[in-house]
């Protein structure tokens, strides 16, 4: 039996590529299924946004952006991103240094904590700030005494956005720092470099692409956050509406062209994010193969790479 199998196998093996490929019809079928699935779930909705946005022509499309309410929503969104992204960038780097460069007790618990906002429903992310800063929340009475407005104002929106987007930079940089280890930094220190100098000259260049990608992603999430922001915003027109909330508002005012026009702005942002991501991935790959060919081949066995990819996927997952 065994001999028969090998004999038959030996005959069939001749061109080795053939046996590990499917027949053409199967290939076409699978490719077709994949494309159909992506088409129905991804491309059609995407095209629909632009189709609806341009339904009344380019003029109506552009007019949607000159509306003062749209402008103030864009301004607020930029402001929120301008605070949340640098804050999370700083935190991400600090946390990545901590997790990537030291071994300490409770490290995995810390990583889980950093991941936590990704797994929390956005509605809950908003709710916790209502429970904290709401008039009847833990701090509400105290804040009301001094007329400090946190929720239903920009600070609340910024906080909710920070909460939701805060793992992105950290989760992007941590795996890379872990993989790269501390040898280069230790060498720099032993040569007399200071801590800050070492970080700036040695660590930062090594993680710059991952860092950039983390920032891009964090930014896209910060600008597009809906659920959490919706709970804490108060929906004051021209004041506490971010772009996604403005889309909802327009949608509810029968102003569909404008709603989809403003939505197309966010779609464009998403597409730019994806394009940048592709570029960054490509850059980091070439950078790695140029400068660290040995390291990559020798010290990154397959299981590490898979684990790292899984982490990639995980950090992308963000409840909006």
């Amino acid at each position: 039996m065994f001999r028969a199998l090998t004999a038959r196998g030996a005959l069939a093996t001749a061109p080795s590529r053939v046996v590990t490929r499917e027949r053409a019809p199967v290939r076409w079928l699978l490719t077709g299924a994949a494309l159909a699935f992506l088409g129905v779930f991804l491309l059609v909705p995407l095209v629909a946004v632009f189709a609806e946005a341009f339904r009344k022509g380019v003029g109506a499309y552009l007019a949607s952006f000159t509306d003062p309410l749209a402008l103030s929503a864009i301004k607020l969104t930029l402001l929120v991103a301008a605070i949340a992204v640098p804050a999370n960038l700083t935190f991400g780097l600090v946390a990545a240094w901590l997790v990537g460069k030291y071994e300490f007790k409770g490290k995995s618990a810390l990583i889980t904590l950093i991941d936590l906002p990704l797994a929390v429903s956005p509605v809950i992310s908003g709710l916790i700030f209502v429970l904290l800063f709401g008039l009847h929340g833990a701090l509400g009475g105290w804040l009301a005494q001094y007329n400090i407005q946190i929720i239903f104002a920009a600070p609340g929106i910024v906080l909710a956005t920070m909460f939701v987007t805060f793992p992105y930079v950290a989760r992007e940089v941590i795996p890379l720092m872990q993989e790269q280890g501390c040898e280069e930094e230790e060498a720099a220190i032993s040569l007399g470099a200071g801590g800050w100098q070492t970080f700036r000259r040695v660590t930062l260049p090594n993680v710059k692409w991952a860092l950039l990608y983390g920032v891009i992603l964090c930014n896209a999430r910060a600008m597009g956050e809906f659920g959490a922001v919706s709970v804490v915003s108060g929906h004051i027109r021209g004041k506490t509406n971010t772009i996604p909330l403005h889309v909802e508002l327009l949608y509810n005012e029968y102003n569909f062209v404008a709603a989809f026009a403003v939505a197309s702005l966010l779609v464009t942002l998403a597409l730019v994010t994806l394009a940048l991501k592709t570029v960054v991935e490509w850059k980091s790959r070439t950078a790695q193969t140029e400068f660290l060919p040995d390291l990559h081949n020798r010290e990154t066995p397959d299981e590490d790479r898979t684990a790292e990819h899984l982490q990639d996927v995980w950090q992308l997952q963000g409840a909006q």
Binding site: L38, L42, L43, P45, L46, A48, V49, P122, L217, A220, M223, G224, E225, F226, G227, I243, P244, L245, V247, E248, Y251, A259, F260, A263, L266, V267, L269, A270, L271, T273, L274, A275, K277, T278, L316, Q317, G318, Q320
Partner: peptide
């Protein structure tokens, strides 16, 4: 590249689309 679209697309936009 487009596979990642749902990551980057704000959910409100996905919703109305």
């Amino acid at each position: 590249a487009t596979v990642d679209l749902p990551f980057a697309l704000p959910t409100a936009v996905s919703g109305i689309a």
